[in-house]
Write a protein that binds this DNA or RNA. Structure first.
Lengths: 194, 194
DNA sequence: GTCTATAAGGGGATAGAC
DNA sequence: GTCTATCCCCTTATAGAC
């Protein structure tokens, strides 16, 4: 029943596409380049992904799944305290931003390339970002501070700054800076309204 | 000599192109769309801008000139104190980020679309960002604080966060948040090492 | 002379067929 | 895997209107 010919083929193609899309941009990468880099035939790729739009959607979903796993693990390791969890979140992003091939947040980058509100993959990206933002709100809401919403906005602003891919090469200490700034911000907010 | 037939034509075309490039992305906007929106013939556009690359370069340079003027004015109004000037810088960006059509920093957006290090317009964008960063460093360096470089990094991180265009719709108070965070950060640094 | 309108060339893109 | 169809894009060239 429509068995997969070579198990993992779809995954391999998607991995190649992901690497290219992220490194060079979605619009800049053609299907032919992906086929060439994957070393497969055209039929194979179009068999798994009937159009570029579906391949791009899979690209978004793969990143989403990856991020969810990594974040969940980081949060679990941080324990139950909301402040610790917020710091762990920023530390996780800081670790990503320090990677050599880091080029910003794939969701934000995609939306920069495709701002159209009706774009299917763009909707996926916006949904993921809204959910991430909601998670920050939720954590801040569990803290005994005077203005949880304002605190969440500050953390989100710092995350946005960390995720700026194009200027990361200009300050390689952005990760530590962001973590320290979040720690201080949390500390002040907790100290002022205990 | 070589006088322009209709004065202001070049400017008008460039304004139309700028609006489209910024709103939809450079790769997404074709020359034909610009021609259609400008209501001119193809020859006229290609007479003023022999290629799309040159039009895009002019787009970058126009934004650069605009930013330099606006920032210079904001800094002049802020006076001589480096801390006031840093706050004014962030306030200026916050005002931009609050505009209805704000869609992030055009230089960062362009580099997201065209990461190629050899791209001519990309080099322009990187140079502008480096100079902006250097201006922040210079201002922080004139402050009596223990770690001016670290302070500059924090301010730059906040600016990067403010300039994230795709998530600005998710928190419309980002401007005030950024200004308040910078004020606090400056205040703490000055108080700790006077 | 200045500009618009239109056609056409060259290249590369997605996608389908064999 | 190669080959083809179709389309869009950048760019140039030609022809026509004010």
């Amino acid at each position: 029943m429509a068995r997969t010919a070579a198990a993992g083929t779809r995954e391999r193609i998607l991995d190649v596409a992901t690497a290219l899309f992220y490194a060079r941009g979605v619009r800049a990468v053609g299907m032919s380049q992906i086929i060439g880099a994957a070393g497969c035939g055209k039929n194979l790729l179009y068999g798994h992904f009937p159009s570029k739009a579906e391949l791009v959607t899979a690209y978004m979903e793969q990143f989403r799944t990856l991020r969810e796993q990594v974040v969940e693990q980081a949060l679990r390791a941080a324990g139950d305290d909301p402040a610790d969890r917020l710091v762990a979140l920023v530390e996780e992003v800081a670790a990503r931003a320090a990677e050599p091939r880091f080029r910003g947040c794939p969701f934000r980058n995609y939306l920069t390339e495709f701002p159209d509100p009706d774009d299917a993959a763009g909707r996926l990206a916006r949904r993921y970002l809204r959910e991430s933002r909601a998670a920050v709100d939720e954590l801040a809401g569990r803290l005994p501070v005077a203005d949880p919403a304002g605190l969440a906005e500050r953390v989100w602003l710092i995350l946005d700054g960390l995720y700026a891919g194009t200027t990361r090469a200009m300050d390689e200490r952005a990760g530590e800076t962001a973590v320290a700034l979040v720690r201080e911000t949390l500390g002040r907010a907790l100290a002022e309204a205990p």
